[in-house]
């Protein structure tokens, strides 16, 4: 039970601190990593929702009591998202590299996209 509210609090903390990082960021690459932190908050939340006390991993290769396992649906949600997240961050990094090339700066406040 305690783990549940602890995980909820950690999820909120990661989301807010990541958003703070994005708002105050002075570097687009730093911003991408802050976005990774924000995404991690959803993982913490989903993990806590899918877990239950005393549960075991939903691998039934030598586990016969199927009602002991934790929720596989939520794990499947996170699994694909983690890999996709990495490619999306790669796309954002590529945009950052391109912005640096076009405008000569990585500071989001000084990037003037209209002149890029």
């Amino acid at each position: 039970m305690t783990y549940f509210y602890a995980a909820m609090a950690v999820a909120a903390w990661l989301f807010l601190v990541g958003a703070y990082g994005i708002v105050t960021s002075r570097n687009l690459i730093h911003l991408c990593l802050c976005l990774v932190v924000v995404q991690a908050s959803t993982y913490v939340l989903l993990t806590a929702v899918g877990y239950r006390p005393g549960g075991v991993a939903p691998i039934f290769i030598d586990l016969k009591e199927t009602d002991k396992a934790v929720d596989p649906v939520i794990q499947a949600l996170m699994l694909t998202d983690i890999v996709v997240e990495a490619t999306v961050v790669a796309l954002l990094l590529a945009i950052a590299v391109q912005i640096k090339k076009k405008t000569g700066t990585l500071d989001p406040d000084r990037v003037d996209l209209m002149h890029g």
Partner: peptide
Amino acid sequence: GQYMRIINSECVAARHVTDAVTAVN
């Protein structure tokens, strides 16, 4: 959820797969 209970109890018998996460995916 009911969904999770069904998948956990069915996936070995109905899909011949032991990793429920892969079965869902």
